[in-house]
Write a protein that binds this DNA or RNA. Structure first.
Length: 545
RNA sequence: GGCCAGUUGGUGAAGCGGCUUAACACACUACCCUUUCACGGUAGCAUUCACGGAUUCGAAUUCCGUACUGGUCACCA
């Protein structure tokens, strides 16, 4: 009788479950290799939470010699957004997360788009119906809503279970009658569970969590024949031989359903790791990241803001494993790939995503790479977001690279660049086009009295110095001649003897030359910009007075 | 409301029965180095781990209760 019902409901499904299984043989991987996946639903932009999960999943697969694949979970056509799939693929690419197989790339375990797999899901549903483990449910939305409000009133658990599952034992004739009427229906699992039993979720991150067994007759196929997440997840991860499922911890409560589905289908469940949600701090309060409220939750935000992808990856790694940061600090020459990620070191509670921390990590990143790499990456950024500066970068390439190289190869590289945007703001004064644009803007931070006697004298004695020491000694002599202390120490001993100290002299030069109070090494800047240009800038400053 | 989880300094967090006078990083403060700023270095910054009780020779670590925070209870994922 169940068989007849199955054929009645799925007349077009000819393929059997056994035939499907044969198409998905076990993967030939070495012992201990992880098969992980990223299973986004294309319902909007890609966000940092997605990226975070994909990043960890890919690292885990890579370092165990396993497989990381992309499966697009598009079972909700109502919420699907145009271009969302491209956004996902581009988002992964933008952060160097490659997948071994999956949507857009192919592979032996496809198709990787769930909407192309409905026949597979239906074949399994048909099998369950024929075994009496699932059934068609003709309840209308109104009926279900009524049940729900009654349950709420009586403070009962909400859902279709036990005596509320009225269509569980429909006779074949009753089903036929419904079908003849053209009534729509869903396929529900006939849950064999009892909520008084406890089951244990062996979560790889959070440890053992005990939960009540599922007794709800979960919908497995919606009325349009498309599976729900629960059903598709269990089948796909079984067929594609996923070993470890990483997902947000909002899925913890539905774990009993997944376990049960695995049991009913005769599958061996995969291992689960439930990741704590990314949170942010706002007005002193911590809350979950919001797709609507937080622009920085969108992956695209980082590219536009000029935040380097490697900085984001490093930050993701420090969030993912609490011991990563210390390891990275001690292994400056290694890359993220060399670090062994583990579930045990993942945070269990909310994970705070802190922009300031990200910034700091980016500074360190920029301080460790070569000027050429920075230049080329920055070029790509400005080409897209600021063509005016892009042109300047091309025109004054050597100048910019020399600038970026100041103090770079020393033991104490500067850390004043956190984003590609900072390159422009930090280096603007070396470009004449920007420097002379607006005097008030250029010198906005400078309000001190300039001792022009000193400046004129400096210009007079200027020559091509052999070394920084050579230069500095000359400045020292000059300072002393003009009534300034040749060292800060001497000045501090008795300030009344001097107009100021050598630091003040250097400051005046710096301010006139750059318009800034904070710059890299002055001697090297002077070399890059040149004495003639320095004279011009002194005049530029004077004339504006 | 039911169920599940979390709660350690200014911030993120390590620790998971004695090695902790609670790691490390960020922030802040002071000093040192330095031509300035930055970088770097040194020191300071929780006698205490949400609160209350219990177990133990010994608890941030185990147990119970309370409070707060987050998650979840769809033909959404």
């Amino acid at each position: 009788m169940n068989k007849e019902l199955a054929n009645l409901l799925f007349p077009n499904i000819k393929i059997t479950v056994d035939e499907i299984e044969a198409k998905y043989p076990a993967r030939d991987l070495k012992e201990g290799a992880y098969v992980t996946r990223f299973g986004p639903s294309p319902t909007g932009f890609m966000h940092v939470g997605n990226l975070y999960g994909a990043f960890i999943s890919s690292m885990l697969a890579k370092q165990t010699g396993g497989v990381f694949y992309l499966r697009v979970e598009d079972t909700d056509s109502k919420r699907e957004k145009e271009g969302a799939v491209d956004a996902i693929i581009n988002g992964l690419k933008a952060f160097d997360i490659d997948y071994d197989e999956g949507y857009g790339k192919g592979g032996a375990y496809g198709p990787y788009l769930q909407s192309e797999r409905v026949e597979i899901y239906q074949a399994y549903a048909k099998k369950l119906v024929s075994e009496g483990k699932a059934y068609p449910c003709f309840m209308s939305e109104e009926e279900i809503a009524d049940i729900r409000s009654g349950q709420e009133l009586r403070k009962e658990k909400i859902g279709i279970y036990g005596s509320y599952a009225v269509d569980r034992d429909l006779s074949l004739d009753e089903v036929k009658e419904h079908l003849a009427n053209g009534d729509s229906y869903v396929i529900r699992l006939k849950s064999p569970g009892d909520s008084h039993n406890e089951i244990i979720l062996h979560d790889l991150i959070k440890g053992d969590i005990s939960l009540p067994e599922n007794d709800i007759d979960e919908v497995i196929l919606k009325k349009d024949g498309i599976p729900t997440y629960h059903f598709a997840h269990v089948i796909d991860d079984h067929l594609m031989h996923t070993t470890h499922v990483l997902r947000g911890d909002e899925w913890v409560p539905s774990f009993p359903k997944h376990l049960q589905l695995n049991q009913v289908l005769g599958f061996k469940p995969c291992k689960y790791a439930h990741i704590a949600p990314l949170t942010k701090k706002e007005d002193g309060k911590i809350r979950k990241f919001s797709k609507r409220k937080d622009p920085e939750f969108a992956v695209s935000y980082y590219e536009e803001a000029g935040i380097p992808k490697e900085g984001v990856r490093l930050y993701l790694a420090t969030l993912a494993n609490t011991n990563f940061e210390e390891w990275y600090l001690q292994n400056k020459d290694k890359s993220i790939e060399d670090f062994k990620f583990s579930f045990k070191k993942m945070p269990t509670g909310g994970t705070l995503f802190d922009m300031e921390k990200l910034n700091n990590i980016c500074r360190t990143y920029f301080s460790r790479i070569s000027a050429d790499v920075i230049y080329n990456d920055a070029l790509k950024y400005y080409k897209k977001y600021d063509e005016e500066f892009y042109d300047l970068m091309i025109k004054d390439k050597d100048k910019l690279i020399s600038f970026l190289n100041i103090e770079r190869d020393s033991k104490r590289p500067r850390k004043d660049i956190a984003t590609y945007k900072d390159i422009k703001t930090e280096s603007a004064y070396i470009f004449n086009d920007l420097f002379y644009k607006d005097r008030n803007e250029t010198y906005k931070d400078i309000d001190e009295k300039i001792d022009y006697d000193v400046i004129n004298k400096y210009i007079e004695i200027y020559r091509d110095f052999n070394s920084e020491d050579d230069w500095y000694n000359q400045v020292k002599v000059l300072a002393e001649e003009m009534g300034y202390a040749p060292s800060v120490k001497m000045y501090k001993e008795d300030p009344t003897l001097y107009k100021g100290h050598i630091g003040d002299v250097c400051e005046m030069i710096r301010h006139l030359l750059t318009g800034r109070v904070k710059t890299p090494n002055l001697y090297q800047l002077l070399k890059i910009i040149g004495i003639d240009e320095f004279k011009n800038r002194v005049e530029f400053y004077k004339n504006g007075k």
